[in-house]
């Protein structure tokens, strides 16, 4: 196993020196790699990484997000994606190329207040992020429990290759949809939804150590609703 060094950092801390690949929330100053966020830093064969422990959701192309429709104009839907930038879903992405504001009724598809799953098609610094619902699992979520959590904790809820979210799904019999913007929708039997909601909140609030999976397992342990 290659060595991975880990440390807790705050803005201004030097994570490593030398020559590495480096990820988000890190600034290179001379040969120093400096943290820009409070978080957990890793230095390993993959380079220098920082997993922030707090921060707003900033959209990135290809992110899967869950948002709510807050406005409709002639050309599409404005979607609150839990960010300082509203998402925009163009009507032509939904009705196709023949879309015409004169003939298509946008609110027949999504109304203000509807919760939708979407992918961020594109985002640059000058315009609001553009959304798309093409692909499986996107579109309107007609029911379920909606929960907001810190976007920085989403990777822990998903787990390695989806291990954590799949485990919660399996044990509670619920479909757990996770938006990278920190919005989660849970659908399933009522007892399962209550359990799954509690676990999501636990992951969001805790500063958990190594064995998060163990803690979740202990919590969901003997009470598997789905009988998994």
């Amino acid at each position: 196993m290659p060595m991975v060094q880990r440390k807790q950092v705050i803005p201004g801390d030097v994570i490593a020196t030398g020559n590495h690949r480096y990820g988000s929330y890190i600034e290179k100053r001379g040969d120093e790699y400096v943290a820009l966020r409070i978080g957990l830093a890793e230095v390993g064969p993959d380079g220098v990484k920082l997993n922030p422990l707090t921060g707003p959701y900033l959209p990135r192309a290809e992110d899967q997000v869950i948002g709510k429709v807050v406005d409709i104009n002639g050309f599409g839907w404005v979607v609150d994606i839990n960010s300082c930038f509203d998402g925009f879903l163009p009507a032509s992405f939904v009705f196709g190329r023949e879309f015409s504001p004169a003939t298509h009724d946008l609110s027949s598809k999504f109304k203000v207040g509807d919760v939708i799953g979407a992918r961020i098609e594109s985002f640059d610094r000058s315009r609001d992020p553009q959304l798309s619902i093409r692909g499986e699992g996107y579109g309107k979520f007609p029911e379920g429990e909606i929960i907001k959590m810190s976007p920085t904790k989403v990777p822990r809820l998903i787990g390695r290759r989806g291990a954590m979210v799949n485990f919660i799904s399996e044990r509670t019999g619920c479909d757990v949809k996770v938006g990278q913007n920190g919005v989660v929708v849970i659908v399933g039997p009522p007892e399962g939804m209550a359990k799954a909601t509690a676990v999501v909140k636990m992951i969001d609030q805790g500063t958990h150590g190594a064995d998060l999976m163990g803690k979740v397992e202990e919590y969901l342990g003997g009470s598997s609703v789905a009988g998994a």
């Binding site: 880990r6 807790q8 997993n51 990777p155 787990g159 999976m213």
Partner: peptide, 17 residues
Amino acid sequence: LAKRFFSGEPQPMEESA
């Protein structure tokens, strides 16, 4: 900041995606 965010625990990150 350490009191608020790190609560003294060691923080390896096995589950991080």
